[in-house]
Each structure stands twice: as C-alpha cells, then as structure tokens.
Design a protein around this nucleic acid. Sequence first.
DNA 1: TATTGTTATACTCTATAACTATA
DNA 2: TATAGTTATAGAGTATAACAATA
Lengths: 161, 161
Amino acid sequence: MKKPAQTSATTTDILMVSDATLRGFVGYHMKRAFNVVQADLVRTLQPFELRMLTYSALVLIVDNPGLRQSQLADAMDIERPNLVVILDELEGRELVSRDRVPTDRRAYALTATPAGQLLCKRAVAAVEAHERALLSGLDDATRATLVAALSKIEKSGKSRA
Amino acid sequence: MKKPAQTSATTTDILMVSDATLRGFVGYHMKRAFNVVQADLVRTLQPFELRMLTYSALVLIVDNPGLRQSQLADAMDIERPNLVVILDELEGRELVSRDRVPTDRRAYALTATPAGQLLCKRAVAAVEAHERALLSGLDDATRATLVAALSKIEKSGKSRA
DNA sequence: TATTGTTATACTCTATAACTATA
DNA sequence: TATAGTTATAGAGTATAACAATA
C-alpha cells in the first residue's frame, strides 16, 4: 500500500501503481500490452499505407484465396459492415479484387492482385522483424506459452458467445 | 495451405484460417484475446454501470488516494484529455471527488467517496470471479507466465517511446 | 517558460438496424 | 424465409492542438 510517488517527479517517471487489485487484473495488462503491440504495428505498417485491419485482411486474403467476405469478417473477428470499407480501400488501391461466385451470386470471392501479393510479402517481413524485436525479451518457450494462452482465451470467449 | 471450408457451412462454423503467416502474428492473437476479455468485462461491469475505463480509474483512485490526474492518465495509459470525461462521469455519480492540492493549485487530488469505495469493492469481486472463470482453462503457472509476458511487452513499449 | 487540467475536434474501431439481391 | 453484401448511423476509444490558471 505504497503512496503515489512524489508530485515533484518529472512526467517521464512511470507511476508505480501500488495495488494488489490491478496486478491480478489480466484485462488491464492485456490492454496495455495490446496498446504497445498496436502502436508498434501502426508505425511498422505506415510505410506501406496499411493499418492493422487492412493488413490483417490482406494477409488473410493472400493466404486464403477465394475467401468470402463473411468468412473473412469471422476470421478477423469484426462485423460484416465494418469489413466493407476495409475492402473498399484495398480494392481501390488494386491490391485485392472482389469477384462474383458463379454458384452463389450473392457472394464475392476475394483474391489478391499481384500488387497485393507483393505488398503483403514486404509488409509481412517488416511486421515479423518488428515483432521479433518487440518480443526479444521473451525466450522461445515463454513466447509459445503466451500465444497458446491467448489462443485458449480466444476460444473460451467463442464458447460462451 | 488448406482451402477455406466449404461455403455450404453454416455461419456458426469458425473459419479455420489456414496460414503460417498469422499464426506467428502475436498482434492478431493479442487483439482477439483482448476482445474476448473486454467483452466479458463489459458484461460483468454492466450491473455497476461501469465500463473498463471508469472501472480502472475507480480502482486506481481507491487504491491510490490523493492521485493526480496526470498520474492516473499515465497509469491508465491514456491521454490526459480523455481522462477528463471519465472523471466527470465518476464525479457526477459522486463516486470520486476532485480536491485542489494546497501545495500546487493547478492540480487535483483524487479520492473515492464512501459510495465509490463500496461500488469498487463489489465490482472488483465480480471482475475477479469472471476473470477466474475466463482463465479457468489455464493452470496457475501458465497464468503467471501470461501476466509476466504481458508486463514485459508493456515495458519494452515504454522503453522505445 | 513549463505544467495541470480543460476544451474542441478529428479519426479509428465497433455495433446495430434496415435495405438489395440473390438463394 | 434466410443469407451475402451493403448503407447509414451511433457510440466508444484515441490522439493532437490550443487555452486558462498556476508554477
């Protein structure tokens, strides 16, 4: 139950949040860690004029050609309406194309153009390098445990939805 | 490099995203896991008419009485302007009070009212119960590794800021 | 000058209802 | 009737610049 640091401290100091309550609050740490990863990602993707959402969509389309929009929205864990503008952007930049599915004329099959594939390849390399740097403080086993734990939490959410 | 599942699958199916690329993309898993935790938190806090941000602020004020707004913003990892409306809400509900600091009349010392302390106590209990349930798939060691890894990522972000 | 809290503002992400065209 | 994609819209969360009061 420490008191907050002296108010004379400069703003570069990080407040030592002295509580037993938030230390066990996983959501708090998850949010802060996600903020860091997200901020790093934004910087990394800026040269490619991609955001996290346009990046994720592009990668998933490149790796899963023929994907339909509803499937992509599921994979990205976003609502279908929110995917539309993302694809509008990618299609407008001619990185991705929407093609009618002959067997179901309501649906669109998503594929990446050669330009989209090239940009994806370069962006993925950049992201991988940045993530390696960001996670360099963790050993391989810890990193594997982290990803496995996050995946389990994902699933436990799906099961109660 | 599996193809996406048959389009005849129902919408309750989860697309098996079959790629080597996103599996190593920690940001992707972090986002999805955070979404799950966040969604659970929203549901848990609804009876208390709190959101994640108002909850975090309230807990931190209760545990660190006399905190100043800039310190709280740092602890919550948000910008000072965004904290103002959060505190307006908590103060309006008389859960928290802003009191002038005599030694620095620019600053406000934040303290929780008795009502704020009571609500906090009950909300914390609810959140702890929900997080326990959410993380029940992880053993203690994994949970500890998860929190430690998230904390390290937080810090590595701060150091490069 | 610099800092605390504030206002105004803009941008991104998220969530829901309702429409259209197909099935 | 149900589904795929779309439109419109509203609500959070986030980020920056600029201001008044104070240091």
